[in-house]
């Protein structure tokens, strides 16, 4: 017999130990479901696309071609990059896209799962976990492109490349933090999903993806305040030169990300019943 479940109007925050215990329990319980949902989403995603998995390669390649042509035509100037420019753009774009996937994924997934959320009481964490798995899967495909790229441009690789996944995971977690924060509100108000693309476009502009980290001026200040920058730059540096330039801000952002993720997770759990009650009848 499963344990007795009690539903009351009281806030779960008044029973923090119970809350943390149920969070842990649901996280464990949602593993298999998350796997199923991930398999379902990935197979559906590629089944109705003629180009299939190629869709994971096309955006970074298009981006790199475009910016390399523009740079060669001296439309804009960027400082020296420590690896060849096309490789620099393509690698950064792949990382940036992974961040964007992690940030927009939970919002879209929760909106799509609305009918399911309104009818079945399954661990809501499964939706987020499934999306994380999908982000990982898509990055894995991009990795093939990156490896090919590194070989083609003979990019030097340092031994620190084995540490790069750690930084990458922090980058994905930061994206997930943004995603979980926005997901409940995104179900209630369409404004969130409508503005998300715009915000991400602007955010890309503030992130050293097509240019190396600026050090001067107001723009340099803005970029320095962008939490994505140290994570993305550190991931790239670990994978290539091995010379780290933003160690302190990397650890500050990572620490805040982990703490923030736990808090937004609590918020997500508390918010979801209210969201479900408002979206359907």
């Amino acid at each position: 017999m499963p344990p007795e479940l009690i539903y009351t109007p009281d806030s779960l925050l008044r029973r923090p130990r119970f809350l943390l215990w149920t969070m842990w329990r649901d996280l464990l319980a949602s593993r298999e479901l998350a796997w199923r949902l991930m398999v379902r989403d990935i197979s559906a995603q590629y089944r109705q696309a003629a180009l299939g998995i190629a869709w994971a390669f096309i955006p970074p390649v298009a981006m790199a071609v475009g910016f390399t042509l523009a740079k060669d035509a001296n439309v804009f100037t960027v400082g020296e990059t420590d690896i060849p420019y096309p490789a620099f753009v393509m690698f950064n774009t792949a990382l940036w896209q992974t961040f964007v996937d992690a940030a927009t994924g939970p919002v879209q997934a929760v909106i799509i799962a609305k009918p399911m959320l309104a009818r079945v009481n399954f661990p809501r964490e499964a939706i987020i976990l499934a999306k994380l798995g999908e982000v990982g899967f898509n990055f894995g495909i991009k990795l093939v492109l990156i490896v090919g790229l590194f070989l083609f441009f003979r990019v030097p690789v340092s031994w620190t490349v084995i540490l790069a996944p750690v930084a990458l995971i922090h980058l994905v977690l930061l994206g997930t933090l943004v995603g979980i924060l926005l997901a409940p509100i995104g179900v209630l108000y369409q404004d969130v999903s409508k503005s998300l693309n715009m915000i991400m476009g602007f955010w890309l502009f503030l992130t050293p993806v097509i240019y190396p980290v600026p050090t001067e001026g107001a723009f340099g200040m803005l970029v320095a305040l962008n939490p994505v920058a140290p994570l993305l730059v550190t991931t790239r540096e670990l994978a290539t030169t091995g010379v780290l330039t933003e160690v302190v801000s990397f650890w500050v952002v990572s620490g805040l990300t982990l703490l923030g993720l736990l808090l937004t997770w609590v918020g997500f759990r508390i918010a979801m019943p209210y969201v479900v009650e408002r979206v359907t009848s």
């Binding site: 017999m1 499963p2 344990p3 007795e4 479940l5 009690i6 539903y7 009351t8 109007p9 949902l37 379902r40 799962a113 009918p115 399911m116 959320l117 309104a118 009818r119 079945v120 009481n121 019943p273 209210y274 479900v276 009650e277």
Partner: peptide, 27 residues
């Protein structure tokens, strides 16, 4: 009763595995 939404007053206790047949073909 299935725990999808919270009551505004009172409480609900459920013992046992509950399956909602409201959910035909969910997902």
């Amino acid at each position: 009763i299935s725990g999808l939404i919270k009551p505004d007053t009172g409480r609900v206790r459920v013992r046992g595995r509950l399956a909602p047949l409201i959910a035909l073909g969910a997902g």
